[in-house]
Design a protein around this nucleic acid. Structure first.
Lengths: 127, 127
DNA sequence: TGAAACCTTCTCATCAATGAGAAGGCAAGC
DNA sequence: GCTTGCCTTCTCATTGATGAGAAGGTTTCA
């Protein structure tokens, strides 16, 4: 599919899809006329990228971890592909992500607890 | 404590502490000479703010949810303090935070699963 | 053939978070 | 008193993710 359709289907402006390509997060083919051609899987990939960006990861980090997300093939599974430095990078990124998860979970719980407490107070006050 | 100590204890540049104040995330007192005076609790507050910023929340959102995090008192517990609009804001923010949590958790798991798979392959290959 | 709807690249602008420095006031120690 | 270190405000710059528009080529369809 071309960039317009991908944009409509993901809700991400074409401008941003070109930017993600520039950042090496997407690698569309090119038609003979130069138009970008995306495979069907790009829809999911873009949603994935959006989710990670919205969660506060940078394009730089996303670029580095994206090859290891969702690999049904085992191209990357050969032990030699994983240098110790790369393994360290992945482990530390996983740890950083975990920290974010904990921070966000904690505060989500606090917001919900507050809402529940007020709700309970409202009922208790008989109104 | 003054801004320098708070900066040292949190690792956040004084420049940023002034910025957070400008964004109304912190409200230090002022000494007679104009110096900012922070209570002990500011250390935790700053760590909290940093965590949320690192998780991709904006200062604007943080400002709006911060009054509802960590309220041991019940100043805000009176039902009248919670307008329906405010309750909606909090619920929708909690939902957005939940989305981030799910996205991050999913991808953390994928990274860890990848690392484990390679580890297993390494052992299986007898090396 | 001509208009409409796409696409291309390039450029300039914005916004939030942050870095960095100048110019100057205050305070503690020698 | 002077130096040193911390504080103040103000200003300018940068970086990453976006928005937006120009100028021009391509496809489609009537």
């Amino acid at each position: 599919m071309r960039i317009g359709e991908l944009s409509r289907r993901t809700g991400v402006p074409a401008r941003m899809l070109r930017y993600y390509e520039e950042q090496d997060l997407l690698r569309p083919d090119r038609a003979v006329n130069g138009y970008r051609i995306y495979p069907e899987a790009a829809v999911y990939q873009v949603q994935q990228i959006r989710g990670l960006l919205d969660s506060g990861l940078t394009t730089d980090i996303i670029r580095r971890i994206i090859p290891f997300l969702d690999r049904p093939d085992d191209i990357h599974l050969h032990p030699d592909c994983l240098t110790p430095e790369l393994a360290d990078l992945l482990r530390s990124e996983a740890a950083r992500i975990q920290q974010r998860v904990e921070c966000l979970s904690r505060n989500r719980d606090r917001i919900l607890a507050y809402l529940e407490a007020v709700e309970a107070a409202k009922l208790g006050a008989g109104r």
